[in-house]
Design a protein around this nucleic acid. Structure first.
Lengths: 136, 136
DNA sequence: ATGGATGCAAATATTTTGCATTTTG
DNA sequence: CAAAATGCAAAATATTTGCATCCAT
């Protein structure tokens, strides 16, 4: 029998396609971008469904999400490698960097305050070399 | 002579009021919230101006900004005390916590990638005790 | 068959922009 | 006085929801 991944509803073509696309990379991508990519491959799917699917996947803990300074929400399959982000304040270019072990501290701190279902984010904002250059 | 804070344009009543309000607390607040607070004190200012002022202050490096998981953009005066946030995913309640020294690592990492004018944010998202309780 | 899933269009929510008017330096 | 700032209304973005139809189970 074929097992269905738990916590993300029924098995539909669209949902499978979104999952498959997310599996192809561990980069953060926006809903709009994912939708465009699917459509460009002739996968029939509406933007609404992409949003609803991503939301379901986030709630099911299958994927992570974060936001750029400009407000765009990004999604990626859960990555077990602990990397954080270096984000350019001006052009929003992001660089993934591996960081120190903040996790242990984060978990303890959260627990101490009665918080559960923890998930943390460490972002470093700055101005990238390109933007700094074109500015002077 | 009265010195004007640098990098944030001309000295207007509105800009001064926004700055003053930000100085009153180091909590993260939304543009809408700041606007409402100013209006409730009979400060004449439009929402547009609040947005434009906050944007200018962020660019001038006078204030920090971040986003909640729901997409709301929040602002606070730059705090030199290294505290981070524990934020409830459901009710958005935030608890300030003092953390480990991530700063050194953050600065080095950024520099290594050519990023300048660094500023970092460490947020822990989770579900607070209250929300966890009302959920069961 | 039947309840969840889909997708279009319309609704929200938030932030940005055009432009005439006011204010600062 | 000239340039910059303000604020209203309208525009632009991103995401969500109503609802009729479709499809997985």
């Amino acid at each position: 029998m074929t097992e269905m991944p738990p916590g993300a509803g029924r098995n539909t073509r669209q949902r499978a396609e979104v999952r498959a696309l997310l599996e192809e990379s561990d980069e953060f991508r926006s809903a709009q971008r994912l939708h465009a990519d699917l459509r460009s491959r002739s996968v029939p799917i509406g933007l609404t469904t992409v949003y609803r699917t991503l939301q379901a996947l986030v709630e099911a803990g299958e994927i992570d999400s974060m936001r750029l300074p400009n407000g765009e929400q990004l999604f990626r399959r859960c990555s077990r490698t602990r990397h954080h982000h270096l984000i350019c304040r001006l052009c929003a270019r992001t660089v993934e960097v591996t960081g120190p072990t903040v996790e242990v501290w984060a978990d303890r701190t959260a627990a101490r305050h009665g918080f559960t279902d923890i998930n943390h984010t460490l972002e470093i904002f700055g101005i990238c070399a390109v933007c700094a250059g074109s500015n002077r």
